[in-house]
């Protein structure tokens, strides 16, 4: 006796199996991002020229561009950009560095974890800009208080991202390091840190965007030069061209920053590919 088989379904209709896979795997061809910008700007330009967007509600993109060119020609662009970039770099670097260091410590030592995790949770939701007056009292009205504000604002999200990333490092890899009698520092530097790097870098993306927001806020509250001060002046005069020129610079700064992290990711995380 043979095993029973089903009779062949000769008469039944044959059709291809419905495709249900695919998706959930975004890739990002560069030109699409650029296209979105171009289309948006072209639309605004066309709308303001055709007149269905009033000049009072939206400045014409070409005028904003002309304002930017003027700004660059007169040299005022650098007068505003240099202090802003310095604040961003100094404050952001301090915040990111201390944040990564503290985050790694929280990830590695029970005492530090027990002591600092609640503190960080308490600090995280404070709107940092509300503390600017405090920082002015502590660090003076000059640059130091702005550095402190930006550093503090980058610090908290970086800490949270970093210790989460350290927690997620594959324990079997650490066990492997110990089983080969690797030194503690080698395990931390060559196993824990590289393993946490993807999480740390994606945390930095968020932290640095927050740094830009705080930069502008700090400059609006008290600075002679800086992109924030420039926007504030333009805003108080309802000079929309200059306001938008300032905002465009900020956006560019954000894109630049995110691009830089992208380059770092490519170099450091090439192994993921």
């Amino acid at each position: 006796m043979t095993d029973a088989t089903f009779p062949p379904a000769a008469e039944a209709e044959a059709r291809p199996v419905r495709f249900r896979g695919g998706g959930f795997r975004p890739s990002s061809p560069r030109w699409v991002g650029a296209l979105v910008f171009v289309v948006l700007i072209a639309f605004l330009e066309w709308g303001t020229r055709a007149g269905f967007i009033s000049n009072l509600t939206m400045p014409r993109p070409s005028d904003v561009f002309a304002t930017l060119v003027d700004l660059a020609r007169s040299g005022m662009l650098w007068t505003h950009l240099v202090p802003s970039l310095t604040r961003l770099l100094v404050g952001g670097a301090i915040g990111a560095f201390v944040g990564i260091a503290v985050g790694v410590m929280i990830g590695l030592f029970s005492v530090v974890r027990a002591g600092l995790v609640p503190l960080v949770a308490a600090l995280f939701p404070i709107p940092k800009i509300a503390l600017l007056p405090l920082f002015v009292i502590w660090f003076g009205i000059d640059e130091a208080s702005k550095y402190a504000l930006i550093a503090f604002g980058t610090f908290t999200p970086t800490v949270v991202a970093t210790y989460g990333a350290v927690d997620n490092v594959d324990r079997t890899l650490i066990r492997m390091g110990q089983s080969f009698s690797l030194s503690w520092s080698t395990i931390v530097l060559r196993i824990v840190l590289p393993g946490a790097m993807p999480g740390i870098l994606s945390g930095l993306r968020v932290s640095l965007a927050i740094a830009i927001i705080l930069l502008v806020a700090a400059e609006m509250l008290g600075a002679e030069y800086g992109i924030g001060a420039y926007i504030l002046q333009a805003g108080s005069l309802y000079d929309l061209e200059r306001l938008f020129a300032g905002v465009a610079i900020l956006s560019l700064l954000g894109v630049l920053m995110s691009g830089t992290i992208g380059v770092i990711e490519k170099r450091l995380l090439g192994w993921r590919a």
């Binding site: 080969f180 030194s183 590289p194």
Partner: peptide, 26 residues
């Protein structure tokens, strides 16, 4: 006393050679 693990435990960010050299250099 040296282990060989079920799930290999190779460092994905190091090449074949790098996985071995890390341990030797330490």
């Amino acid at each position: 006393l040296t282990y060989v693990f079920q799930d290999f435990a190779l460092l994905p960010w190091r090449s074949v050679e790098g996985n071995i050299s890390l341990i030797l250099s330490d």
